[in-house]
């Protein structure tokens, strides 16, 4: 038997919004430690890695390790049926063919359950080695989303350059060029509004706007986003999810042909 109950059910709604445009289907791996999901987009350019720790749930029971293959479009449709303040429970038997989502209103007066068929997926799992990044930028998630959206008007790609002076986002194309520079915050009253940069060496890489804009669908999950960059390593874009876990996106850079 598997059962995971989350009082802040809106987190599940936001997670689905954050992955459904990038991935059509994915396996949810459930074990003692919690729920993980790892999947690449069809083009194998980006990867989503989600981790929800069991201790972050209000109730968590997993008698046997489970892998549940789900169509994320269908899962998103079901989670749209949950209210923002609903308590969400995900339930499955051992070796399940289906998964059940239960939504309870805060006052307990309304309860709905939705059963979804599972899929048998044969997806490639990648080993993601731990690495020391050359630059780690933390900034407000809304600001990053805004910059990606704004610069996408100028071209297909964004150059992210990071140095001691700060982080610069650049794009150019037919209509002209655009640069957005952010300096490290000097005086921070609110931590979530801060821009911080940890730099070992300056870096500058080019990334496809299309994917960056997919990643920013996770913005409602977190006040801050962390961008980690290193030579010969994909960009990592990370959003913390309350005190339950995080969603990480990896993106291969563009290179000069």
């Amino acid at each position: 038997m598997f059962e995971a109950r989350l009082a802040k059910g809106a987190i599940f709604k936001k997670i689905l919004e954050a992955v459904k445009d990038l991935l059509t289907e994915a396996s949810w791996d459930c074990g003692d430690m919690g729920i993980t999901l790892q999947a690449m987009d069809n083009a194998h350019v980006s990867l989503v890695s989600l981790n929800l720790r069991s201790d972050g749930f209000d109730k968590y029971r997993c008698d046997r390790n489970l892998t549940m293959g789900m169509n994320l479009g269908s899962m998103s449709k079901i989670l749209k049926c949950a209210g923002n303040d609903d308590i969400v429970t995900i339930r499955a038997q051992d070796n399940p063919d289906t998964v059940t989502f239960v939504f309870e209103s805060e006052n307990g007066e309304k309860q709905s359950d939705y059963e979804m068929k599972l899929m048998s997926l044969d997806l490639e799992h990648l080993q993601i080695p731990e690495t020391e990044y050359a630059c780690v930028v933390k900034m407000p998630a809304g600001e990053f989303a805004r910059i990606c959206r704004d610069l996408s008007q100028f071209g297909d790609s964004i150059v992210i350059s990071c140095s001691k002076q700060g982080v610069k986002f650049s794009a150019s194309g037919d209509i002209g060029s655009a640069n957005v520079k952010l300096a490290q915050s000097s005086n921070v009253d609110k931590e979530e509004e801060a821009v911080t940069i940890e730099m070992q060496e300056p870096v500058s890489f080019t990334y496809a706007c299309r994917y960056l804009n997919f990643f920013t669908k996770a913005t409602p999950l977190s006040a801050q986003v962390k961008l980690s960059m290193s030579p010969e390593y994909p960009l990592m874009v990370e959003y913390a999810i309350d005190d339950i876990g995080q969603i990480r996106y990896f993106l291969a850079p563009k290179i000069e042909d």
Partner: peptide, 14 residues
């Protein structure tokens, strides 16, 4: 002209 690299060239199968 820019080429898009794939993740497979960075990460190996688990």
């Amino acid at each position: 002209k820019q080429g898009q690299r794939r993740l497979d060239s960075f990460f190996t199968a688990a």
